[in-house]
Amino acid sequence: MKVKLITIVVVVILLVVYAVTGVYQVDPSQVALVKTFGKYTHTVGPGIHIHAPFPFQSHVIVDVQTVRKQEIGFRTVRPGQYVQKKEEALILTGDGNIVSVEAVVQFKVNDPVKFVFRVENPEELVKFTTESALREMIAKRTVDEILTAERDRVSYEVHQITQQLLDAYDVGITVINVLLQEVVPPQTVIAAFDDVNNAKQDKERYINEALRYANNLIPSVEGEARKIILEAEAYAQQRILQAQGETQRFLSILKEYKGSPRITETRLRIETLEEVLPKAKRIILLDGSQNITLLSLDKLIGGGEK
């Protein structure tokens, strides 16, 4: 009788323990997907719940609020310590160079049912999809673009492409961000890249110095050219006015000549002699008998040669 009682107690305890296996707790950031005979039936939210014990029912807990991440090109060993994965980090650029890229994709679960039951390993799918999009975008650009101006653009495009692919796979995932944490040349060619960058910086410096010299020189040259042009214009204007004056003078003399030819002719000769004689030292005269007479102005004015 005692053995029978013990057996009953043990059976009851086992039944209670078996029934308790159907009790479970869901945290505030989680939901539970309940399966009946292995098939999904419904979803329950945070709190303490109970369902029929295995194998009748079971559940899968899914965190739908925490931001998850996948690392590309490196792995976090512990906070502040990382290990590089060279086989993932090295990516070929569009101009035939290689860069080492370390990236992080952040995502959340927006549909836990699809996330759990659509694919076997959805987090790895996120990683492979992001890595594929990253390689595609970098392959379209030169190494200089990747290392400088196009870095943020690559992050944006990889984010968009990854989300489009995951939507096409219908896995219930929302990509929050794709961060390029480090984009550098491989260790073996860093020295060569530094030489190239230094050469480019020297080139830019020389160009800037040349432009600065040109900017200082051009105003001076333009001012000198302007001065020459103004002097030429003034000279041209002077010659024009002088020519116009000579023309008016000639026209007035012509008018007088037409009125009194002999008087005008005599006056012109006298004016010419008044202008020429003061500059002459000797004068040769030819009289009516064709004799040549030499006059010395110095003797005539009381001087004389010594």
Rank of each mutant, 00 (worst) to 15 (best):
I72G: 08
F193I: 03
V196G: 00
D111S: 08
Q248L: 15
D194I: 10
A133P: 04
Q160P: 03
E246L: 11
R68F: 13
L277P: 07
P219T: 06
D152L: 10
V113W: 08
V183Y: 07
L134M: 11
E182M: 12
S58D: 04
I161H: 07
E305K: 13
F117A: 03
Y82L: 13
Q201W: 03
Y235W: 03
L254P: 02
F115R: 05
Q25R: 14
Y213L: 09
S220D: 12
V99P: 12
P122L: 06
V221Q: 08
T148C: 01
H59R: 11
R269E: 05
I270F: 04
E231G: 04
S100N: 10
L300R: 02
V154W: 07
P186L: 11
E265M: 10
A103V: 01
V109S: 02
L273Q: 06
R226S: 15
K281V: 11
N97C: 10
L254H: 09
V175E: 04
A236F: 03
P79M: 09
V113T: 08
L273A: 14
T130W: 07
L268W: 06
L134V: 04
V184Y: 12
F117E: 10
E131N: 11
I173C: 09
R239H: 00
L92T: 14
G302Q: 05
F115Q: 04
F107Q: 05
V11T: 02
I8Q: 06
V99R: 06
V12K: 09
L297N: 03
V221P: 04
K69P: 00
A225R: 08
V12L: 15
D144F: 13
K35W: 03
R141K: 15
M137V: 06
L294H: 08
Q30K: 04
T188P: 01
V64H: 02
E305P: 07
V171D: 04
E274F: 07
